Simulated assay, not measured.
Amino acid sequence: MVDSASLFERAASAPPVPSGLPLVIALTGFTDAGGAVSQLIEHLRDDLESLPLAVFDNDILLDFRARRPIVTFDGDKLTDYQPSRLEFSYARDAVGQPFLMLTGYEPDFAWEAFGRAVLGLAEQYGVSTVTWLHAIPMPVPHTRPIGTTVSGTRTELTAAHSVWRPHTQVPGTVGHLLEYRFAQRGTPVAGFILLVPHYLGDTEYPAATLAAFDSISAATGLVFDGDDLRARNKEFLVRVEEQVRESDDLTRMLHGLEERYDAYMAGSTSATPMVHTGDLPSADELAAELERFLASRPTGDEDKRPGPLG
């Protein structure tokens, strides 16, 4: 059995942390439709005042051959090496409210030991609630709000925000494991699954990250500045809608998605209309139609983010 205490190193100059703070968990891994979680992590780390409390050991938890570190090659030499980061941190939101966050990659190994380590840190810091997020592709239109499926023990959040409540078995993530373990301990926990348009699943879709922030705010009362994301999303949607207008096939496809979404939200009795695709297009078909407009980025963006379609 792996010793959970060996999985991380405590920060040497960690600040004093008040007890009773909410914990936000954002880990990339099995699915991240629309780049919702990866963009969320970027904003949490870069835009907020945060300090690591514990840094997890990549050599124990990460498969480097599956997720390789980034190196910078400059002419005849290497000038930078950027390993992946998995950190438990103390942060403040846009109005100065403190909270804790666990951000980074989903571990490839030692899930149970990782879970024990996270629960131990949460207990040490007296975490009040736990909120985690991930995003999956769904046959829904981008012209409607991004919905969520909410799991966990906070029934008030499920009642208010869960638009789809399936009875099924799915491949688990470490987020599911953490939710399950926190629930066993009696910690109030909520998991938000963002339902992202499947044809935009391989893009960096700013609306998906805005929906992630909205979910965190609903669960914790934390406040985030989404002005940059809203501006990016407005530009993104203009480009999508231009392409839709130019294609009769895309227009018909989008109308089909809208009709099924609206029927579902109105309480249609049709069998699982949100997941029964029938004659609806596949993600690949829609992505191929959109590629001409969405594959290009303004000059300068290529060195910041991967291309929207891979």
Results as ranks from 00 to 15, higher is better:
35 G>L: 03
36 A>Q: 03
36 A>P: 14
36 A>D: 07
37 V>H: 09
37 V>P: 02
37 V>W: 06
37 V>D: 02
37 V>E: 03
38 S>N: 04
38 S>W: 00
39 Q>F: 00
40 L>T: 06
40 L>H: 03
41 I>V: 10
42 E>F: 06
42 E>Y: 06
42 E>C: 00
43 H>Q: 12
43 H>Y: 09
44 L>S: 04
45 R>W: 04
45 R>Q: 09
46 D>Q: 14
46 D>S: 14
46 D>H: 10
47 D>W: 04
48 L>C: 03
48 L>N: 05
48 L>W: 00
48 L>T: 06
50 S>W: 14
51 L>W: 12
51 L>M: 10
51 L>N: 01
52 P>H: 11
53 L>Y: 01
53 L>G: 05
53 L>E: 07
53 L>Q: 04
54 A>E: 01
54 A>V: 07
55 V>N: 02
56 F>N: 00
56 F>S: 02
57 D>A: 14
58 N>T: 05
58 N>I: 02
58 N>K: 00
59 D>T: 01
59 D>Y: 06
60 I>S: 11
60 I>E: 12
60 I>T: 07
60 I>H: 05
60 I>C: 03
60 I>K: 14
60 I>Q: 13
61 L>Y: 06
61 L>V: 01
62 L>G: 09
62 L>T: 05
63 D>N: 15
64 F>A: 15
66 A>R: 12
66 A>H: 04
66 A>T: 10
67 R>K: 12
67 R>N: 15
69 P>E: 01
69 P>M: 01
69 P>Y: 00
71 V>C: 03
71 V>L: 11
71 V>T: 12
71 V>E: 08
72 T>H: 13
72 T>Y: 08
72 T>S: 13
73 F>I: 14
73 F>K: 04
74 D>I: 13
74 D>Y: 12
74 D>E: 15
75 G>K: 13
75 G>S: 10
76 D>G: 13
76 D>Y: 13
77 K>G: 11
77 K>Y: 07
77 K>L: 11
78 L>D: 08
79 T>Y: 15
80 D>T: 14
